[in-house]
Design a protein around this nucleic acid. Structure first.
Lengths: 312, 312
DNA sequence: GCTGCTGATACCATGAGGGTATCAGCGCTT
DNA sequence: AAGCGCTGATACCCTCATGGTATCAGCAGC
């Protein structure tokens, strides 16, 4: 399969006619037919339905068309990016974003970085943790925001860009919701905990487990949610408590949910900027610096409140 | 340029050696060299630096490599998707997501849809409004969540999936922050308003303007922010007020920011599911139904509160 | 039954891609 | 210093895939 097949297929799918597509492509119709036939053979299924008087896409063809368009677009972007870079006009940093966790961090970093590097494009992509780790190794992204418990591969550099105290989020009717000041972490041992299933929030379970181990007990995980938002929903509905970084509680605050800091010396939740030793964009370093700077000032009013007197 | 060029280039970039790359590709080294040379000619710039004893990527090559990988991956995905579809195993719905606005809406809809259609993959992509509109026309995405003021092209169907009352978000020290109940909207005429610049949140400005026009005055926009988050930051810092859908205020609630509903008969903020008449996935209809259902129950406690007595 | 449209088939040519043999530059060893 | 081993580049040839032309097959409407 070559880009030619994709170009031809897209043309036919757009024109819904071999003849007209051939015209637009400046080739004759028979070679076009043959290329499409070859493509269908390689895929192994019919992509087009030839009715008299026209062509229609099969279900398979519809999906293939989408992928073909994306592939062609990426190929064109690659050329464009290379030309731009050769002219020294812009660079590019691609950041793999870790869901809503970085909602508080990214905006500030982006704003600061745009000021110091106006010609550098920062492209934020939403992907799962495992996808980020794979993409880092491939060089598809320059930078990922990962938790410390992530299975980071060899050849990577990391820098902590954000630390956030661990809090317990719970229904406002919960027995632990009443008191003031930090909770005695040993109280948690008896609590069934809610969690986010690993499919979407990979690593949450490991992180929560490691926090409990550090306190000194094995967690009892009661009920899983599919997304961070539905986890909050479960808490609000009174199903139980969950461990969370304080910064997450800032972003999504919902009536019926209360969060209190944990006492003792619990290691804070930590977000690591992670990038490859070799082959990364030269703009990774300044961007990481911007992240680290953004991880400190404004939104840190709560995030910084580790085990300091602010909490007490 | 063909996929072959991309495959070859990726192989060389991975091996950092023409010989070894040629081995892995099962071709001889000279043809490989020629293909790479042709590719560099087409791009117009050197992608590789040939040093004695090895190969290094140029800056242009680094960026090209990334695009090449993506293009190849999309091409592979296209084939895979077509095969899956032909077996009737799964369908696919791609949703263009409108930033944080749909944070409250999507999780519920996704959960419900997964229950009724477990074999259908829903792929959520983060993109700007204009990118969504273009992608809809191209068939790259099946569905977009757009505001009513968006310039939707012909051949599209829409369905309202969420309505949310308009609130005024302001610093807690603001004169309008004190009273109770809905604000008299005419009070706003004197207020300088903050806004999100059109680059990131395309359409916000039009929407806010149309709300003011409906009330009966021309808005005075004072200061722009780059992201929704930094807008909230500006408000918290006391720079002024901003109009917002109530649902947005639910997601991001920050100390120092207060929001109050607007009185009178202001049309609510509305989110439209938008899809192409023809060529869309067959699963669009049930997914839109799931969205509409999710737009009603739980998070609607505030969102539903249009101009009903709940506000008064 | 003719003409118009649709796409498929048959066959031929040209040229691009791939093969082999060889060259050129450089570092290391003997 | 000469030879060897590695690197990638060049020269040349062959083959087959791609694209061309001519034609066929099915169907609609006049």
């Amino acid at each position: 399969m070559e880009l030619r097949h994709l170009r031809y297929f897209v043309a036919v799918a757009d024109a819904l006619s071999f003849r007209r597509a051939a015209e637009r492509l400046h080739v004759a119709q028979p070679p076009l037919s043959r290329q499409i036939r070859d493509l269908e053979e390689e895929v192994g299924h019919a992509l087009l339905e030839r009715d008299r008087g026209g062509v229609r896409l099969t279900d398979a063809g519809r999906l293939f068309l989408r992928g073909a368009r994306r592939s062609l677009e990426e190929a064109g972007n690659a050329v464009q990016a290379a030309r731009d870079a050769a002219r020294g006009r812009i660079g590019e940093v691609v950041v793999g974003n870790i869901g809503t966790l970085s909602l508080t961090l990214l905006p500030g970093a982006l704003a600061a970085f745009r000021k110091s590097h106006p010609h550098v494009e920062v492209d934020v992509r939403e992907m799962t943790r495992d996808a980020m780790i794979a993409a880092l190794a491939e060089g598809t992204i320059d930078l990922a925001l990962l938790t410390r418990t992530s299975p980071i591969r060899a050849g990577m550099q990391t820098q902590s860009v954000l630390q956030s105290a661990v809090v317990l989020a719970m229904p406002s009717t919960h027995r632990l919701a009443r008191g003031r000041g930090p909770i005695d972490p040993r109280e948690l041992a008896a609590e069934p905990l809610l969690y986010v299933r690993p499919q979407f929030a990979q690593g949450y379970l490991e992180w929560a487990t490691s926090v409990c181990r550090h306190i000194g007990f094995a967690p009892r995980f009661a009920r899983g949610a599919d997304t961070r938002e539905s986890l909050i929903g479960l808490i609000a509905a009174g199903y139980g408590c969950a461990l969370a970084p304080a910064m997450l509680a800032v972003g999504v605050r919902v009536p019926g949910v209360v969060s209190r800091a944990l006492g003792g010396s619990i290691p804070p939740f930590e977000l690591l900027a992670t990038w490859a030793d070799r082959g990364a964009s030269r703009y990774v370093d300044p961007f990481v610096a911007a992240l680290a700077a953004a991880g400190r000032p404004a939104p840190a009013k709560i995030a910084r409140a580790k085990r300091s007197k602010v909490d007490r």
